[in-house]
Design a protein around this nucleic acid. Structure first.
Lengths: 208, 208
DNA sequence: GTGGAATTTGAACGCAGGTTCAAAATCCGA
DNA sequence: TCGGATTTTGAACCTGCGTTCAAATTCCAC
């Protein structure tokens, strides 16, 4: 071990093992919260999905709310990238918006990482709730900016960007409530159909 | 009182009073469930909104789940009428769908009666859950039928009616998560914008 | 006015679930 | 191998909340 009186850092191997366990717990929690809701999900539920007793969870997370917050954080990291990718990869607002929709749907269906966007934030501590809401607001503002640009360029009808974003996010977030990966429609195809429907509702109306 | 041995029916006045109290409890519960979710709402919460102690609620409902189920039933009664009205009042699929969307949005925003559509059904007893799901499925089938007819007539693009209905209901149900009646957009205007966006996304694409 | 019905109340109970704790088991680096 | 670190466990604790109960209060129909 290291010098006397100086606590040793765990080895890289032990740190990696701990990270894997945390990731496993978070994935189990994410699925449980998505299936049943935060309040209806018990620590016993999550622990059972991992294969341990619930008291083991306290070795990795201080409490249940911290698990929920970690799920939110991972989700926000994922969606945070979508806008940058859209801006970099596409020239028109319609293409950018379609990309974000497709990718957001993929997060809801393939990795389920987008599911926390559908979670109520009321179960978070006040500080955590503020942070999650701030990040969600930033994402929504970026979506609104894309729509505003589309309206300005004449690509989109003169809609309220705020209302349009709520409608789009509502359609996407609701996927957590009904989509099952074993169903007949794959995530990519679902994303394509959602993008056509939701972007189409903006682009075509300008012709009237 | 009535004849010995024969329990008296309450008078019309007492029955009316009882109905008003039940309606008051259901409205308070509906708002509390919508604001906080079923599990995070306590009977103390609901009772406080009514102005009684929680034990008084047991005079009108056998338990907490019965209150939730009654909220669902009222909501389903309301939305059940939308399709009939749409079929009677409009000739094209686009007009019918637009009407249902506008009116469903109104239920979400004005009376809040549509909010239970956004609630998870997991908290209901198995029997109640089956009934609520059956009624929701019937509503979704009717929406799909409108869209199928629109596709058949060439009014709508060749979309998957199932996916389109999920997208539409997702956008509408999500209103319970963000809409506040004191905000700048009224329910009627919101309904109009949602109808334009969501129906527009179906009608225009057939031109391509 | 009054007896009975209806409604509400405060107190109490029981239990589920989040959390703590100390001991046991497993892992790991030297 | 082995001592110490890490992880997991079973037991226990505590609290919040749904529910029950008996008594008190209010309402109502005659």
């Amino acid at each position: 071990m290291s010098a006397v009186g100086s606590p040793a850092l765990p080895s890289p191997h032990v740190r990696a093992k701990r990270r894997r366990r945390r990731a496993e717990i978070l994935e189990a929690a994410l699925r449980a919260f998505r299936d049943q809701g935060y309040h209806a999900t018990t620590l016993d539920d999550i622990a059972a999905r991992v294969g341990v007793r619930k008291t083991a969870l306290y070795h990795y997370f201080p409490d249940k709310e911290a698990i929920l917050y970690a799920c939110h954080r991972e989700s926000l990291l994922e969606v945070g990238r979508l806008i940058e990718e859209a801006r970099r990869g596409y020239g028109t607002a319609a293409e950018q918006l379609a990309h974000v929709i497709r990718e957001h749907v993929r997060l809801m269906t393939d990795t389920l990482q987008g599911s926390p966007f559908a979670f109520d934030v009321g179960a978070l501590s006040p500080g955590h709730e503020r942070r999650v809401i701030a990040a969600r607001d930033a994402y929504e503002r970026q979506l609104r900016a894309i729509i505003e640009e589309g309206v300005r360029r004449g690509e989109f009808a003169a809609v309220s960007p705020k209302v349009a974003v709520f409608a789009i996010l509502g359609a996407i977030n609701w996927i957590a409530r009904w989509y099952r990966p074993e169903g007949p429609v794959g995530g990519a195809e679902l994303g394509r159909q959602f993008a056509e429907h939701l972007v189409g509702g903006l682009t075509c109306r300008r012709a009237r």
